[in-house]
């Protein structure tokens, strides 16, 4: 059976088509205002890539913050379950899944089948999610995708003292005014975010068998800071981290 997993995220919608445990196609579009329309467009793109018609899909399962908004879905699964299923499918030894998305981040402890044993979600605050780096990139006047590589060029650690996004933005501005290197500020931004994420991970317990998923795992600056903060030399990052939850949803659709 062909199944579809749709991860309706705060910033982008991701679609995965699967057949018998193999990924057949994937697609990603911006969420926009109408999540249902965006999901439809993403599904259409994936079907086109696979050369399939809508009718060929046996079951559609959604996840993500807009998972209830998709009327044609067969079912929906929670974000924690989708991330755990997807992560364990890709990396069977993973026991802790750290999902850092645009608006939310979570740490999930799971068993070998991808069953969620415990989970923690970031406080209702942007400082622990991708939105934080976006705001700081704006303040630094750097495109978001350059923020990570920029921070890797940093030569010194400066503490990010402001703990909230609004204060952090004005702190970044004062750092710019005091002629601090942009690379160092970028690193401080990632250190701030990773400290928030790690604090959350500590609630479920830190297990070296971890994997980073979610769009923010694309950011090499964040990954570097994360490693430093948890004190691990190696941190596994999913290859296409933003698709892991959609894979999990597609797997759930096949159950």
């Amino acid at each position: 059976m062909i199944t579809a997993g749709i991860d309706v995220g705060a910033k982008t919608v991701k679609v995965i088509l699967m057949e018998d445990g193999k990924i057949k196609a994937k697609a990603k579009v911006l969420s926009g205002f109408d999540q249902e329309e965006s999901a439809k467009a993403a599904l259409g793109q994936a079907l086109m890539e696979a050369g399939l018609s809508r009718e060929a899909v046996g079951s559609i399962v959604t996840t993500g913050n807009g998972r209830k908004a998709i009327s044609y879905a067969t079912d929906d699964v929670t974000e924690a379950r989708a991330a755990a299923l997807g992560a364990v499918f890709l990396y069977p030894s993973a026991r802790t899944v750290i999902d850092v998305g645009a608006e939310e981040s979570r740490a999930i402890k799971c068993d070998p089948s991808g069953k969620v044993l415990d989970f923690a979600v970031n406080e209702k605050c942007a400082a622990g999610s991708g939105a934080f780096t976006e705001a700081m990139a704006r303040a630094l006047e750097v495109p978001l995708e350059e923020l990570g590589p920029l921070s890797l060029r940093s030569t010194q650690t400066i503490p990010m003292n402001a703990q909230c996004t609004v204060f952090a933005e004005s702190e970044v501005v004062s750092l710019i005014h005091s002629k601090t290197q942009k690379a160092d500020i970028a690193r401080a931004v990632h250190d701030g975010l990773s400290s928030r994420v790690v604090a959350m991970v500590r609630r479920v317990g830190l297990d070296p068998e971890l994997v980073l998923v979610g769009g923010v795992a694309h950011n090499p600056g964040f990954v570097e800071s994360f490693k430093r903060t948890v004190g691990l030399d190696n941190v596994r990052t999913a290859e296409e981290p933003e698709f892991v939850s959609a894979i999990g949803a597609a797997l759930a659709a096949g159950e």
Binding site: V77, T78, E79, A80, R81, K115, V116, F119, V121
Partner: peptide, 8 residues
Amino acid sequence: RIESFMET
């Protein structure tokens, strides 16, 4: 969160 807990 409740749904995740129910799954657990």
